[in-house]
Amino acid sequence: MSKNEITPDLVEKVAFLARIKLQPAEVQRYTEDLKGVFNWLEQLNEVNFDDVELEDNVPTLLREDAITDGNKLEDIVHNAPQQNFGMFSVPKVVE
């Protein structure tokens, strides 16, 4: 990955993937910033990863199968910007 691959188009594409609308000035600024950051990240290419084994052997916690939650409609919906019928309301989703 070279810093030259960071273009305003790419920044906009990735911003859409992250669902973030950017103003044109932001696109310019992030393009420059990201070039710097990704250039700096290049140094990881110096590292020799040949014999690196990822240790990942601490087991996750488990819980017993019991109904301990729910029945809190008010808590669930009271912060919602828009709600009706006990449900969250969003612009119509067309499939």
Binding site: T68, G70, K72, L73
Partner: peptide, 23 residues
Amino acid sequence: SKSKLFSGAATAFGADPNTQVSL
């Protein structure tokens, strides 16, 4: 199962909207 994969809310079919929901 009685409760959800990652929370203690119930799984039964046909409950009122958002009543079997945890935070």
